[in-house]
Amino acid sequence: MVNSGLTQNNQLDKEHSGDKPLRVRFRWLTDNRMSFLFLSPTMLLLLFIAIFPLIWSLRLSFTDWSVIGDAGKIPEPVGFHSYGTALGLGETRTEKRVGVEVAERFAITGQFVLPTVIIELLLGFGLAMLLNRKFLGRGLLMTVMLIPMMLTPVIVALYWKYMLRTDIGVINYLIHDIFGGPRIDWLNQIKIAIWALVLADVWMWTPFMMLISLAGLSAVPKYLYEAADVDQASAWFKFRHITLPMVTPLLLIAVLFRTMDAYRLFDQAWVLTGGGPGGSTEVMSFYLYLVAFKDFETGLASAIGYIMLIVIIALANLLIRKINEIADEG
Protein backbone atom coordinates (compact mmCIF):
# COMPACT_ATOMS: atom_id res chain seq x y z
CA MET A 1 0.00 0.00 0.00
CA VAL A 2 2.66 2.45 1.05
CA ASN A 3 4.89 1.48 -1.84
CA SER A 4 2.23 1.71 -4.47
CA GLY A 5 1.37 5.17 -3.24
CA LEU A 6 4.99 6.25 -3.35
CA THR A 7 5.58 5.16 -6.92
CA GLN A 8 2.67 7.27 -8.04
CA ASN A 9 3.72 10.33 -6.14
CA ASN A 10 4.76 12.03 -9.32
CA GLN A 11 1.61 11.49 -11.25
CA LEU A 12 -0.38 14.27 -9.80
CA ASP A 13 -2.41 15.04 -12.86
CA LYS A 14 -5.93 13.86 -12.46
CA GLU A 15 -6.20 12.61 -16.05
CA HIS A 16 -3.66 9.85 -15.49
CA SER A 17 -4.90 8.70 -12.17
CA GLY A 18 -7.74 6.37 -13.08
CA ASP A 19 -11.20 6.57 -11.70
CA LYS A 20 -10.79 7.61 -8.10
CA PRO A 21 -9.81 11.21 -7.36
CA LEU A 22 -6.33 11.64 -5.94
CA ARG A 23 -7.77 12.71 -2.66
CA VAL A 24 -9.14 9.24 -2.11
CA ARG A 25 -6.10 7.44 -3.45
CA PHE A 26 -3.77 9.36 -1.14
CA ARG A 27 -5.92 8.90 1.91
CA TRP A 28 -3.24 6.69 3.46
CA LEU A 29 -0.90 9.68 3.35
CA THR A 30 -2.04 11.32 6.55
CA ASP A 31 -0.35 14.47 7.74
CA ASN A 32 1.64 12.42 10.21
CA ARG A 33 2.99 10.07 7.60
CA MET A 34 3.70 12.92 5.26
CA SER A 35 5.70 14.83 7.83
CA PHE A 36 7.67 11.66 8.51
CA LEU A 37 8.32 11.17 4.80
CA PHE A 38 9.36 14.78 4.33
CA LEU A 39 11.65 14.90 7.34
CA SER A 40 13.39 11.55 7.27
CA PRO A 41 15.79 12.10 4.33
CA THR A 42 17.18 15.25 5.92
CA MET A 43 17.36 13.84 9.42
CA LEU A 44 18.91 10.54 8.30
CA LEU A 45 21.59 12.21 6.22
CA LEU A 46 22.51 14.64 8.97
CA LEU A 47 22.56 11.82 11.48
CA PHE A 48 24.89 9.70 9.36
CA ILE A 49 27.24 12.33 7.97
CA ALA A 50 27.22 15.02 10.65
CA ILE A 51 26.39 13.38 13.97
CA PHE A 52 27.76 9.87 13.61
CA PRO A 53 31.30 11.16 12.84
CA LEU A 54 31.05 13.40 15.85
CA ILE A 55 30.24 10.50 18.14
CA TRP A 56 32.99 8.49 16.53
CA SER A 57 35.54 11.21 17.15
CA LEU A 58 34.34 11.40 20.75
CA ARG A 59 35.16 7.72 21.08
CA LEU A 60 38.54 8.19 19.37
CA SER A 61 39.38 11.03 21.72
CA PHE A 62 39.54 8.53 24.56
CA THR A 63 42.09 6.39 22.71
CA ASP A 64 45.63 6.79 21.46
CA TRP A 65 44.73 5.38 18.06
CA SER A 66 46.57 6.57 14.96
CA VAL A 67 45.06 6.44 11.49
CA ILE A 68 48.39 5.41 9.94
CA GLY A 69 50.06 3.18 12.52
CA ASP A 70 47.03 1.43 13.92
CA ALA A 71 44.83 0.95 10.85
CA GLY A 72 42.73 -2.16 11.28
CA LYS A 73 43.50 -2.36 15.00
CA ILE A 74 40.80 -1.85 17.58
CA PRO A 75 41.36 1.47 19.36
CA GLU A 76 42.83 1.03 22.84
CA PRO A 77 41.01 3.12 25.44
CA VAL A 78 43.26 5.42 27.47
CA GLY A 79 40.60 7.39 29.32
CA PHE A 80 41.10 11.11 29.61
CA HIS A 81 44.79 10.87 28.84
CA SER A 82 44.63 12.83 25.56
CA TYR A 83 42.53 15.57 27.16
CA GLY A 84 45.09 15.82 29.98
CA THR A 85 47.91 16.07 27.47
CA ALA A 86 46.14 18.76 25.46
CA LEU A 87 45.42 20.78 28.58
CA GLY A 88 49.06 20.67 29.66
CA LEU A 89 48.88 17.99 32.35
CA GLY A 90 51.16 15.59 30.47
CA GLU A 91 54.16 14.03 32.16
CA THR A 92 56.70 13.25 29.45
CA ARG A 93 58.50 16.00 27.62
CA THR A 94 56.62 15.57 24.34
CA GLU A 95 53.32 15.60 26.18
CA LYS A 96 54.24 18.79 27.97
CA ARG A 97 55.21 20.35 24.66
CA VAL A 98 51.79 19.46 23.23
CA GLY A 99 50.15 21.21 26.20
CA VAL A 100 52.22 24.34 25.62
CA GLU A 101 51.46 24.25 21.89
CA VAL A 102 47.72 23.96 22.41
CA ALA A 103 47.72 26.91 24.81
CA GLU A 104 49.79 28.94 22.33
CA ARG A 105 47.49 28.09 19.42
CA PHE A 106 44.45 29.12 21.41
CA ALA A 107 46.17 32.42 22.15
CA ILE A 108 46.96 32.87 18.45
CA THR A 109 43.35 32.14 17.58
CA GLY A 110 42.28 34.77 20.09
CA GLN A 111 44.78 37.23 18.62
CA PHE A 112 43.13 36.67 15.28
CA VAL A 113 39.46 36.44 16.26
CA LEU A 114 39.29 39.41 18.67
CA PRO A 115 40.80 42.14 16.45
CA THR A 116 39.02 40.77 13.39
CA VAL A 117 35.56 40.82 14.91
CA ILE A 118 36.10 44.17 16.67
CA ILE A 119 37.49 45.92 13.58
CA GLU A 120 34.75 44.50 11.38
CA LEU A 121 32.08 45.55 13.87
CA LEU A 122 33.37 49.11 14.30
CA LEU A 123 34.13 49.66 10.61
CA GLY A 124 30.94 48.00 9.44
CA PHE A 125 28.72 49.86 11.89
CA GLY A 126 30.46 53.17 11.27
CA LEU A 127 30.08 52.79 7.53
CA ALA A 128 26.43 51.87 7.94
CA MET A 129 25.82 55.00 10.05
CA LEU A 130 27.36 57.12 7.30
CA LEU A 131 25.70 55.40 4.39
CA ASN A 132 22.24 55.15 5.94
CA ARG A 133 20.58 57.46 3.46
CA LYS A 134 19.57 57.50 -0.17
CA PHE A 135 22.30 58.41 -2.63
CA LEU A 136 23.29 57.90 -6.22
CA GLY A 137 24.78 54.45 -6.80
CA ARG A 138 23.67 52.93 -3.51
CA GLY A 139 22.51 49.73 -5.17
CA LEU A 140 25.78 49.41 -7.07
CA LEU A 141 27.85 49.85 -3.91
CA MET A 142 25.78 47.27 -2.02
CA THR A 143 26.21 44.74 -4.81
CA VAL A 144 29.95 45.35 -5.04
CA MET A 145 30.29 44.93 -1.28
CA LEU A 146 28.41 41.65 -1.38
CA ILE A 147 30.95 40.11 -3.74
CA PRO A 148 33.94 39.61 -1.37
CA MET A 149 32.07 37.39 1.09
CA MET A 150 30.85 35.14 -1.71
CA LEU A 151 34.30 34.49 -3.15
CA THR A 152 36.30 31.32 -2.74
CA PRO A 153 38.42 31.77 0.42
CA VAL A 154 41.35 30.02 -1.23
CA ILE A 155 41.38 32.56 -4.05
CA VAL A 156 40.99 35.49 -1.68
CA ALA A 157 43.96 34.28 0.33
CA LEU A 158 45.94 33.65 -2.85
CA TYR A 159 45.38 37.17 -4.06
CA TRP A 160 46.17 38.83 -0.79
CA LYS A 161 49.35 36.79 -0.74
CA TYR A 162 50.29 38.27 -4.11
CA MET A 163 49.32 41.79 -3.12
CA LEU A 164 51.12 41.64 0.22
CA ARG A 165 54.47 40.46 -1.17
CA THR A 166 57.33 42.55 0.19
CA ASP A 167 59.14 43.07 -3.09
CA ILE A 168 56.53 43.15 -5.83
CA GLY A 169 53.31 43.46 -3.82
CA VAL A 170 51.08 46.35 -4.75
CA ILE A 171 50.23 47.12 -1.11
CA ASN A 172 53.84 47.74 -0.26
CA TYR A 173 54.19 49.77 -3.44
CA LEU A 174 51.34 51.99 -2.24
CA ILE A 175 52.68 52.24 1.30
CA HIS A 176 56.33 52.72 0.39
CA ASP A 177 56.52 54.40 -2.99
CA ILE A 178 53.36 56.49 -2.93
CA PHE A 179 52.89 57.37 0.74
CA GLY A 180 56.53 57.11 1.79
CA GLY A 181 56.00 54.60 4.58
CA PRO A 182 58.26 51.68 5.44
CA ARG A 183 58.17 48.46 3.45
CA ILE A 184 56.21 46.00 5.57
CA ASP A 185 57.23 42.37 5.48
CA TRP A 186 53.64 41.19 5.91
CA LEU A 187 54.05 37.47 5.57
CA ASN A 188 57.47 36.77 7.04
CA GLN A 189 57.48 38.59 10.35
CA ILE A 190 56.14 36.86 13.40
CA LYS A 191 54.33 39.86 14.87
CA ILE A 192 52.88 41.04 11.56
CA ALA A 193 51.80 37.87 9.78
CA ILE A 194 48.68 37.46 11.92
CA TRP A 195 47.63 40.97 10.83
CA ALA A 196 47.82 39.86 7.21
CA LEU A 197 45.16 37.29 8.07
CA VAL A 198 43.14 39.95 9.88
CA LEU A 199 43.42 42.29 6.90
CA ALA A 200 42.20 39.70 4.40
CA ASP A 201 39.32 38.74 6.68
CA VAL A 202 38.36 42.36 7.29
CA TRP A 203 38.27 42.90 3.55
CA MET A 204 36.05 39.89 3.09
CA TRP A 205 33.60 40.34 5.97
CA THR A 206 33.30 44.03 6.90
CA PRO A 207 30.57 44.36 4.25
CA PHE A 208 28.64 41.70 6.12
CA MET A 209 28.70 43.74 9.32
CA MET A 210 27.83 46.83 7.34
CA LEU A 211 24.85 45.26 5.60
CA ILE A 212 23.45 43.85 8.83
CA SER A 213 23.92 47.21 10.56
CA LEU A 214 22.13 48.90 7.68
CA ALA A 215 19.26 46.44 7.98
CA GLY A 216 19.10 47.25 11.70
CA LEU A 217 19.30 51.00 11.17
CA SER A 218 16.57 51.04 8.56
CA ALA A 219 14.28 49.18 10.98
CA VAL A 220 14.43 51.95 13.61
CA PRO A 221 11.06 53.74 13.47
CA LYS A 222 11.36 57.34 12.22
CA TYR A 223 8.90 58.74 14.78
CA LEU A 224 11.37 58.09 17.59
CA TYR A 225 13.83 60.52 16.03
CA GLU A 226 11.07 63.00 15.33
CA ALA A 227 9.97 62.87 18.96
CA ALA A 228 13.58 63.41 20.06
CA ASP A 229 13.84 66.38 17.69
CA VAL A 230 10.78 67.93 19.29
CA ASP A 231 12.57 67.66 22.65
CA GLN A 232 15.69 69.13 21.03
CA ALA A 233 17.79 66.13 21.96
CA SER A 234 21.44 66.16 20.94
CA ALA A 235 22.77 63.92 18.18
CA TRP A 236 24.69 61.92 20.76
CA PHE A 237 21.59 61.45 22.90
CA LYS A 238 19.67 60.17 19.88
CA PHE A 239 22.46 57.78 19.02
CA ARG A 240 22.92 56.55 22.59
CA HIS A 241 19.26 56.18 23.54
CA ILE A 242 17.49 55.40 20.26
CA THR A 243 19.84 54.02 17.61
CA LEU A 244 22.10 51.86 19.74
CA PRO A 245 19.44 50.01 21.76
CA MET A 246 17.45 49.30 18.60
CA VAL A 247 20.40 47.97 16.62
CA THR A 248 22.27 46.03 19.32
CA PRO A 249 20.33 42.75 19.09
CA LEU A 250 21.01 42.44 15.38
CA LEU A 251 24.64 43.47 15.84
CA LEU A 252 25.10 40.77 18.46
CA ILE A 253 23.75 38.18 16.06
CA ALA A 254 26.25 39.42 13.48
CA VAL A 255 29.03 39.21 16.08
CA LEU A 256 27.95 35.66 16.91
CA PHE A 257 28.13 34.61 13.27
CA ARG A 258 31.46 36.29 12.69
CA THR A 259 32.99 34.89 15.88
CA MET A 260 31.94 31.37 14.98
CA ASP A 261 33.31 31.72 11.45
CA ALA A 262 36.54 33.45 12.43
CA TYR A 263 37.16 30.82 15.10
CA ARG A 264 37.17 28.07 12.51
CA LEU A 265 39.22 29.92 9.91
CA PHE A 266 41.27 27.43 7.97
CA ASP A 267 41.60 28.00 4.23
CA GLN A 268 43.12 31.46 4.55
CA ALA A 269 45.58 30.39 7.24
CA TRP A 270 46.72 27.58 5.00
CA VAL A 271 47.06 29.50 1.75
CA LEU A 272 48.00 32.99 2.91
CA THR A 273 50.58 32.25 5.59
CA GLY A 274 50.74 28.46 5.75
CA GLY A 275 50.81 28.73 9.54
CA GLY A 276 54.16 30.50 9.38
CA PRO A 277 56.42 32.17 10.10
CA GLY A 278 57.43 29.86 12.91
CA GLY A 279 53.90 28.73 13.67
CA SER A 280 52.86 32.28 14.53
CA THR A 281 49.68 32.04 12.46
CA GLU A 282 48.73 28.48 13.28
CA VAL A 283 45.15 29.10 14.33
CA MET A 284 43.39 26.23 16.11
CA SER A 285 41.76 24.69 13.03
CA PHE A 286 45.05 24.65 11.20
CA TYR A 287 46.94 23.23 14.18
CA LEU A 288 44.32 20.54 14.57
CA TYR A 289 44.75 19.60 10.92
CA LEU A 290 48.50 19.28 11.41
CA VAL A 291 48.11 17.06 14.48
CA ALA A 292 45.56 14.88 12.72
CA PHE A 293 47.02 14.59 9.22
CA LYS A 294 50.70 15.39 9.57
CA ASP A 295 51.56 13.82 12.92
CA PHE A 296 48.67 11.34 12.56
CA GLU A 297 47.92 11.52 16.27
CA THR A 298 44.26 10.76 15.66
CA GLY A 299 43.29 10.25 19.31
CA LEU A 300 44.97 13.43 20.49
CA ALA A 301 43.55 15.40 17.55
CA SER A 302 40.03 14.23 18.38
CA ALA A 303 40.48 15.36 21.97
CA ILE A 304 41.73 18.78 20.83
CA GLY A 305 38.76 18.96 18.46
CA TYR A 306 36.40 18.36 21.34
CA ILE A 307 38.10 21.01 23.45
CA MET A 308 37.67 23.42 20.52
CA LEU A 309 34.03 22.47 20.30
CA ILE A 310 33.40 23.01 24.01
CA VAL A 311 35.08 26.43 23.89
CA ILE A 312 32.99 27.65 20.94
CA ILE A 313 29.76 26.26 22.37
CA ALA A 314 30.44 28.05 25.65
CA LEU A 315 31.24 31.28 23.82
CA ALA A 316 28.19 31.01 21.57
CA ASN A 317 25.95 30.32 24.55
CA LEU A 318 27.29 33.37 26.34
CA LEU A 319 26.47 35.52 23.32
CA ILE A 320 23.07 33.91 22.77
CA ARG A 321 22.17 34.47 26.42
CA LYS A 322 23.15 38.10 26.06
CA ILE A 323 21.02 38.40 22.91
CA ASN A 324 18.01 36.87 24.65
CA GLU A 325 18.47 39.14 27.66
CA ILE A 326 18.36 42.18 25.41
CA ALA A 327 15.43 40.80 23.46
CA ASP A 328 13.51 40.24 26.71
CA GLU A 329 14.15 43.78 27.85
CA GLY A 330 13.04 45.30 24.54
Binding site: A50, S57, S285
Partner: peptide
Amino acid sequence: MLPPVVVLIPV
Protein backbone atom coordinates in the same frame (compact mmCIF):
# COMPACT_ATOMS: atom_id res chain seq x y z
CA MET B 1 28.25 25.40 14.44
CA LEU B 2 30.91 22.71 14.33
CA PRO B 3 34.34 23.77 13.16
CA PRO B 4 34.59 21.54 10.08
CA VAL B 5 38.07 20.35 10.98
CA VAL B 6 36.66 18.63 14.06
CA VAL B 7 34.57 16.27 11.93
CA LEU B 8 37.26 16.02 9.29
CA ILE B 9 39.02 13.15 11.06
CA PRO B 10 36.04 10.84 11.53
CA VAL B 11 34.62 11.74 8.12
